[in-house]
Design a protein around this nucleic acid. Structure first.
Length: 556
RNA sequence: GCGCUCGUAGCUCAACGGAUAGAGCAUCUGAUUACGGAUCAGAAGGUUGGGGGUUCGAUUCCCUCCGAGCGCACCA
């Protein structure tokens, strides 16, 4: 990348000018404002204090030294503002970007940050007591996108779903299902959801009129898991492992963990229960591991579960949890630390907390509760909107802010939907390709195309976006923030529409036509890759519905 | 009370400690004899919740206050 080359030049310039390296290294970033050139660095300001000189003076010394080993493509360097060094490059650097994109193809922008790392990513993991609710769709979309981002940085990513099938919730669920089946009154803490009525009638159809509560549990559990898989398949997410909590108990893993913690002096007995001395390890308080009735707690089971993941050979564990579970983060990490995994600065597992989704319909918030019964499921949403729409909508914003999912807006399939805006950009590029082919124009070998003809500001804007793409991806992976890709792709699509408007690709000038055909190909690569990482399709054509053509049902 | 996450344009949201805080929607004004108008251009819209601090420089880091959501079980 050109920014690396500039940084390298600055580094040798600093040495030549007898200046130290800034503590934070040399930061070369893309200028936001065209007046500030193409790339800028703050090294002169960063060094001001250590060197004891004014930023402008240091900047001048760097410029002088740079002349010994100037970075490629640089036309001039200016000192501006409080001491920035602004690099103005010839457009040729952007033509090189085009070549890089085409050469890398579908790997363009991908990196090696996590090469050789095996990462286990656990997400969704809702209790198997009912269908996935709509809000859970956020974790489906976010988890899958993060997995893609990590994989694009070279990681071997394993998607995992934890089935909490040994706890009391499943008992309550089975009892609720049984009551729906037998007509008895639901337990007060039972699941009120109407989906159980439907399930009960199917259970009767399949198993007859003489079902025991144990059978209800087995059948209901299997049925729910099947529903979960189906819903996830509808939105295109595949898990590598569905892990059963029962296995941890049957195999004695939980007992092993408890024995180890006790042997190492991390536990104590109180009130007939076994406690983890977690407060001493940095938790808010101590936590119960074994209740006084002998049952192990969620924490004990979860410790065994995460230990198992690491024993399966993963280098790193990531869990995505809803923010309503944030109280458990510290105890799990501290407990894993006591078992000898992770470190205080890099605990295992790494836990990503996502704020919850509020559903809105008709301008009012819809309350979601699996138990209370007023459930809008992910499946309901997918009945109304395309999976692409659902996915991108969930990926539009960062996970640490609460999301309001407006069902009216999303299901309207309206023109304002960013999904169509971005996909349309891709369809347009494909359309140009079809048009060119129909006219008998095929792209010449890239090496024989004169890219220096690409000088229009619209063209350069597209290439600048592509130049930033690798950095966008690595930051998004590092921060586990797929919404950065969403933001990029919307902006990129916008630039592509602007280009389309102002620059005709297939025209009289044959050389320019070929240059622009390659430019659109590079754009297609970038768009398709970004959408792919987000789990959104990149269609070659799009159907326009009648509803869209006549939004008011008006006369055309 | 304690803890976690937030508070940015009318609305929904962006912004590696960097220069004039950006998009979309909504509002207003324009653009098409050509590659798909699900498009483009422009205008208007802000004390980044309030107040301190750190520094060359703060939406970003620290403190405090206000407000919101969520936690604080021998439930998961």
């Amino acid at each position: 990348m050109i920014s690396d080359q500039i940084a390298a030049s600055i580094k040798s310039a600093l040495a030549a000018a007898d200046l130290p390296l800034p503590d934070r290294g040399i930061e070369v970033i893309a200028a936001k404002n065209r007046d500030h050139g193409d790339w800028q660095t703050n090294v002169a300001m960063a060094l001001a204090k250590a060197v004891g000189a004014r930023p402008s003076e240091i900047a001048q010394r760097i410029i002088n030294a740079l002349e010994l080993s100037p970075p490629p493509h640089v036309e001039r360097v200016e000192i501006a503002g409080p001491g920035f060094l602004n690099f103005f490059l010839s457009p040729t650097w952007l033509h090189d970007v085009l070549v890089e994109v085409v050469a890398a193809g579908e790997n363009f922008g991908h990196g090696e940050m996590y090469a050789g790392t095996r990462i286990n990513l656990e997400f969704v993991s809702a209790n198997p007591t009912g269908p996935l609710h709509a809000g859970g769709g956020r974790w489906v979309a976010v988890g899958d996108a993060i997995a893609n981002l990590l994989a694009a940085q070279g990681a071997e990513v394993h998607r995992e779903y934890y089935l909490n099938d040994a706890g009391t919730q499943l008992q309550v669920f089975a009892a609720s299902l049984y009551c729906r089946y037998s007509g008895e009154e639901l337990p007060t803490d039972g699941y009120q959801g109407e989906y159980l009525i439907e399930m009960a009638s199917r259970m009767r159809a399949e198993l007859g009129n003489d079902v025991s509560i144990e059978q209800a549990l087995d059948w209901g559990y299997a049925d729910v898991v099947r529903q979960l898989r189906d819903d996830l398949a509808r939105i295109g997410v595949h898990f590598d492992t569905w892990f059963s909590e029962r296995l941890l108990h049957e195999r004695g893993d939980v007992a092993e963990v408890l024995a180890k913690l006790t042997k190492d002096g991390h536990t104590f007995d109180k009130d007939g229960a076994l406690w983890l001395g977690s407060e001493a390890l940095g938790d808010q308080r101590d936590r119960v591991l074994v209740r006084n009735d002998g049952a192990t707690t969620y924490l004990a089971n979860d410790l065994a579960y995460h230990r198992d993941k690491l024993r399966r050979g993963f280098d790193h564990l990531i869990d995505i949890w809803g923010a309503d579970h944030h109280g458990q983060v510290k105890s799990l990490q501290v407990g894993m630390g006591a078992l000898g995994y992770g470190s205080p600065t890099e605990p295992e597992p790494e836990i990503l907390l996502g704020q919850l989704v509020k559903l809105q319909r008709g301008g009012e918030l819809v309350r979601l509760s699996k138990r209370a019964g007023d459930v809008i499921t992910l499946s309901d949403i997918l009945d109304e909107v395309d999976p692409d729409v659902a996915r991108l909508t969930f990926l539009l914003q960062g996970i640490d802010s609460a999301q309001t999912f407006d069902l009216d807006v999303v299901t309207a399939q309206s023109i304002e939907n960013p999904v169509y805006y971005v996909q349309y950009a891709h369809a347009r590029v494909a359309s140009i390709g079809r048009k060119a082919a129909a006219a008998g124009i095929n792209r010449k070998e890239l090496a024989r195309v004169d890219l220096s003809l690409l000088t229009h500001e619209r063209e350069l804007d597209l290439l600048r976006s592509l130049a930033e793409y690798p950095e966008i991806l690595s930051r998004a992976a590092e921060l586990r923030a797929p919404h950065r890709v969403s933001t990029w792709v919307r902006d990129f699509a916008s630039r592509l529409h602007g280009f389309y408007r102002d620059c005709r690709v297939i025209g009289e000038d044959e050389a320019l036509t070929h240059a622009r055909l390659w430019l659109t190909e590079a754009c297609r690569i970038g768009l398709a890759d970004a959408l792919g990482l987000l789990g959104v399709s990149a269609p070659d054509r799009m159907e326009r519905t009648d509803e869209m053509r006549e939004p008011d049902g008006g006369d055309l």
